[in-house]
Design a protein around this nucleic acid. Structure first.
Lengths: 247, 247
DNA sequence: CGGCTACCTGTGAATCTCCTGAGAAACGGC
DNA sequence: GCCGTTTCTCAGGAGATTCACAGGTAGCCG
């Protein structure tokens, strides 16, 4: 497992400067570990629980700033955990993890309060991005800072999913968007293909590693076409994005 | 996939700047929780009660700016709660929750005083909209909040339910209207089908997620027909509304 | 300069998402 | 109760997206 760069962009941190605390609730140890690792690399403090009861206990003790919650737990239904969680901590944002096929019926109501969810198998980038979004917005009535990533004249808006290079609007597919977001969250930093694969693709992706090359190629065609290139290859190491050297 | 809409733009808040306080009275915990979440998400401060006695107590303590009141409570009739509520707080607007088949005439009496009601199962958008309307009219909250939503040349009037694109009046069905309202309350933000389903459709809707696609299709036919499209699809992510890129 | 390796990218197929017409069912006004 | 309207299911089809494969290209080393 490659080591991750810490998040670069405007860091969420609590008013008193202490680190953000996240509670991860999942009974599958492998997933729980994977998530913990990824969230710790974001600089967040992670605590885990394996069932609903443990989650409620942990929530009470640790007073997390956000919760990642698997809707399928051995002892409790997701809705129930949510309801009881809300009794103690009405404002904690919750990110649900759910199986792909469960989406249609069980999600109903879960996201109604501004919470969010991702379906398994998810990509770590997605989880992190969603968590950031949730926390940003739960920062009660905090000025609606638009979640924009900016590198040189390249601008990515996470809310509207719009991307601009200079004045030109650029259409990206879902995967391209996530890849670019990952690059832009780590500007001027070399990211290996393995890292990219780990973060941007779902954890169960079993394909060829050269999808990354392929998508880098797609991105270049769209954002670097005819302009000063911002996506650079470090042969044998990986890729990085940085503003063009142009004036 | 989705990141969440923040509360709508024109924010209701009390003259002194403190958050709006809403009291939710319902004996069904699930509903009460769902409502609390949705209302908190609007930036309001929510307090709950499970019966008439509790409601009166809470009303006295918390002096809410609005009350959401289930007409069927274990200990008291809705009429009675209302009457006694009014003794303490003659001007608090009340939104009644009532079963579909409940006698219309009694409700009619209840709402004669400027209150309003919604029938179960309701959609969260509807409850929120009604509450906003009540508070706006009661004048308790700041009056500056418009009942109009404007995105580009598209105008939606929440009071009259009129919709105009430019000079053309557009007739929408109830569901179309709520969907458009939700989109317009979150302009330039990608809303996932799940989010839309959660907010616009009733909490007990168990159908196919592609109703959303269907209604988006209807809306486009009515508001985008022949014009610069304002409703956009973000494949794999959701939909968003934004003004056309007018020259 | 030759060869090795890493990277780039055209092609095409499988898959997935979304759009929309048709019609059934539920609703509402009279 | 009847009829127009609205809501929703279903299914086909168009088109976008993802990805494997493979041949081409460029850096790097001796």
């Amino acid at each position: 497992m490659p080591s991750f760069p810490a998040a670069a962009s405007a860091d969420l941190s609590r008013p008193d400067g202490s680190p953000v605390r996240v509670l991860v609730v999942d009974d599958e140890a492998a997933l729980s570990d994977l998530l913990s690792m990824a969230l710790r690399y974001e600089g967040w403090e992670v605590r885990t629980a394996a069932d609903g009861a443990g989650a409620l206990r942990a929530a009470r003790d640790a007073r997390p700033d956000a919760v990642v919650l698997d809707v399928m737990l051995p002892d409790m239904d997701g809705l129930e955990v949510l309801a009881r969680l809300r009794r103690d901590a009405p404002d904690v944002p919750v990110l649900f993890l759910t199986a792909k096929d469960a989406v249609e019926d069980r999600i109903a109501g879960l996201t109604a309060g501004g919470d969010d969810y991702v379906t398994k198998p998810f990509s770590l980038e997605e989880v992190v991005a969603r968590l950031r979004g949730l926390m940003r917005r739960s920062g009660a009535a905090a000025a609606r800072s638009e979640s924009m990533l900016v590198v040189g004249d390249l601008v990515l808006n996470e809310d509207s999913h719009e991307v601009y290079r200079g004045d030109d609007s650029i259409h990206l597919t879902a995967t391209e968007f996530e890849l670019l977001r990952f690059l832009m969250r780590n500007p001027r930093r070399v990211l290996s293909k393995a890292q990219i694969l780990d973060r941007v693709w779902s954890y169960d992706f079993g394909g060829q590693a050269n999808v990354v090359e392929l998508y880098i190629s797609y991105l270049r065609r769209k954002i670097d076409a005819g302009r000063a290139p911002m996506i650079h290859t470090r042969r044998g190491a990986g890729y990085l994005i940085k503003p063009g050297e142009t004036a």
